[in-house]
Computed example of a mutant assay.
Amino acid sequence: MQDATLCHPVVDGELLLIRKQRGVGEGKLVGPGGKVETGETPAEAAQREVREELRVDPVGLAKRGEFAFHFRDGEADDDSMYVHVFAADGVDGEPRATAEAVPEWHPVDDPPYGEMWVDDRVWVPHLLAGETFAGEFVLSDDGESLRRYEMEIGVDLE
């Protein structure tokens, strides 16, 4: 399973998301992130991905969760990922659009769940509340419905 990251900066009550321009989830609003490269820690990968996608550096990075993400029930496949989820309490710089991502700010009390992955409705509220979590999400092959999930709140991520 491929290790990947997501980072969700929150600044002055606003959540920084990106509109994916290509790849898995194209057109959806997601946190900046991507694959962990050889020799990187998940935190280093999260920082690099935010920098590459938005031309800013996340500040106050803190791991909030981790989960397995699959498109096929009961089996890992080429699209399966083990996602390390981070929050950031700021960004250094002004987010800019890149070929991969267009930045959008949204109120933390009203995330645009209708434009996000269906599993985000389950775990993003815990991230925004400062809680830690771990779990597994299985989506339909088209990624539009949640087949099943398991999640534990208040886990030790060390």
Rank of each mutant, 00 (worst) to 15 (best):
residue 128 L to P: 00
residue 109 D to N: 14
residue 135 G to C: 04
residue 105 W to V: 11
residue 142 D to Y: 10
residue 119 D to Y: 06
residue 132 T to S: 13
residue 136 E to I: 05
residue 142 D to N: 12
residue 105 W to I: 13
residue 146 L to R: 05
residue 106 H to Y: 15
residue 122 V to C: 04
residue 127 L to E: 01
residue 143 G to C: 07
residue 124 V to P: 00
residue 107 P to H: 07
residue 124 V to F: 04
residue 121 R to M: 12
residue 147 R to F: 04
residue 125 P to Q: 07
residue 118 V to I: 15
residue 130 G to E: 00
residue 134 A to F: 06
residue 119 D to H: 11
residue 116 M to S: 11
residue 135 G to H: 02
residue 129 A to R: 09
residue 117 W to K: 07
residue 136 E to A: 13
residue 142 D to E: 09
residue 146 L to I: 06
residue 125 P to W: 02
residue 118 V to M: 08
residue 106 H to T: 14
residue 111 P to Y: 09
residue 129 A to Q: 08
residue 139 L to G: 01
residue 137 F to Q: 03
residue 134 A to K: 07
residue 133 F to H: 05
residue 114 G to D: 15
residue 126 H to A: 11
residue 109 D to S: 10
residue 120 D to M: 14
residue 127 L to P: 01
residue 131 E to M: 01
residue 108 V to E: 11
residue 105 W to R: 14
residue 128 L to I: 03
residue 124 V to C: 01
residue 122 V to S: 05
residue 140 S to V: 05
residue 147 R to H: 10
residue 120 D to G: 10
residue 116 M to D: 06
residue 119 D to A: 13
residue 139 L to D: 01
residue 106 H to P: 06
residue 142 D to L: 09
residue 142 D to F: 07
residue 115 E to F: 14
residue 129 A to W: 00
residue 123 W to K: 06
residue 116 M to W: 06
residue 134 A to E: 14
residue 124 V to I: 15
residue 131 E to Y: 00
residue 123 W to N: 02
residue 107 P to K: 09
residue 132 T to Y: 02
residue 122 V to R: 05
residue 140 S to E: 08
residue 136 E to W: 02
residue 113 Y to I: 08
residue 130 G to D: 00
residue 127 L to N: 01
residue 129 A to G: 06
residue 137 F to Y: 14
residue 141 D to R: 14
